[in-house]
């Protein structure tokens, strides 16, 4: 029941927040911008189209989008959106991290599979970025596990209900996860989601050979992933409400819309970092997570 609601909320609302980000960016540069529901129209258009495969590709190309999509849905089920998470057991933060990594791995395989040089270049960049951003991700999860004394996402986020969220540790963690959100979803300072210049793009370069329904699935997955990361980051400061009701849905909506506006502002005020500087950005983020860990350790949890 709860799992169903959680999946429905994820599937129906996530493109809306991409719309909010685009709208914010358009507003800040003084444009009217796309309609708020444009991501839905784009997805619908793609889902109506046929698929064309390159002659050099193997079945990996066909499997990858489905693996990516399903691992993301699985990892979302581990996250407590309303009260308890639909799936939870001790140690599921490891599963959560690896499900996301599995999706990335298959995306890399698919990019290498078609044998296009641009896709391969995109894959190599994605692998570099992934390797460095997972450092910060794991340290961040470690801090959460340490300060809540549990290894399950469910109890980590519910534990926060009884405590003040506005401690240095959590603000540092929020900063870490916000930067991770920008990195993992190829947002502005790392990768420009709008660019289609092959030499600079990362995520877009990997999916050049996709079209139709499968491209739809990949884009849908990236909106879902954005939603997941925004929820994760914002739940560190504003914990989830205990039960599912209209109020908790509205609360969730405003929380995430707030982050979406924040992402929009960050994206329109920052310039893209040079490709060579990206590892430095990610190492700085890792340092932030490390600082959070040490502060948590020295203040003795909570």
């Amino acid at each position: 029941m709860l799992a169903g609601i959680q999946i429905i909320v994820l599937l129906t609302f996530s493109p809306l927040f991409v719309g909010i980000i685009t709208k914010t960016k358009a507003f800040l540069v003084g444009k009217k911008g796309q309609p708020l529901l444009q991501p839905y129209y784009d997805l619908l258009k793609l889902f109506k189209k046929d698929v064309v495969y390159s002659t050099t590709s193997s079945p990996v190309l066909k499997i990858a989008p489905l693996v990516g999509f399903s691992t993301l849905l699985m990892s979302f089920l581990l996250f407590p959106l309303f009260g308890k998470a639909p799936l939870h057991f001790e140690g599921d933060i490891i599963l959560f991290a690896y499900l996301l990594a599995l999706g990335r791995f298959w995306a890399l395989l698919a990019a290498l599979d078609v044998g296009s040089s641009f896709a391969g270049m995109g894959a190599s960049r994605e692998a570099t970025i992934g390797a460095l951003s997972e450092l910060a991700f794991f340290v961040g999860l470690g801090v959460l596990a340490y300060s809540s004394d549990s290894l399950s996402l469910d109890s980590i986020f519910l534990w926060k209900l009884g405590h003040s969220a506005w401690q240095p540790v959590f603000l540092l963690l929020f900063a870490t996860f916000f930067l991770l959100l920008l990195t993992e979803n190829s947002r502005m300072p790392i990768d420009d989601p709008n660019t289609h210049l092959e030499l600079t793009m990362i995520h877009e370069a990997m999916i050049l050979d996709y079209g139709g329904v499968e491209l739809g699935f990949i884009l849908y997955r990236s909106t879902l992933k954005l939603f997941l990361f925004m929820t994760f980051a914002v739940s560190l400061l504003w914990p989830t409400l205990l039960s599912f009701s209209l109020a908790s849905l509205v609360f969730l909506f405003f929380k995430i819309a707030g982050v979406a506006v924040g992402v929009g502002i960050v994206e329109s005020t920052l310039a893209r970092i040079r490709l060579l500087k990206i590892p430095q950005f990610l190492i700085a983020n890792f340092m932030l997570a490390l600082l959070a860990l040490l502060v948590a350790l020295s203040t003795g949890g909570n």
């Binding site: 190492i283 340092m287 490390l290 040490l294 502060v295 020295s298 203040t299």
Partner: peptide, 28 residues
């Protein structure tokens, strides 16, 4: 930056060993 991280870890583990009184200020 990575060296900074190493120094950070060293400083935190060193501070545990020294344990100086910091009275009005936090241990940090």
């Amino acid at each position: 930056l990575l060296w900074g991280g190493i120094l950070l870890v060293g400083a935190f583990s060193g501070a545990k060993v020294v344990s100086l009184p910091t009275a009005p200020f936090p241990f940090l």
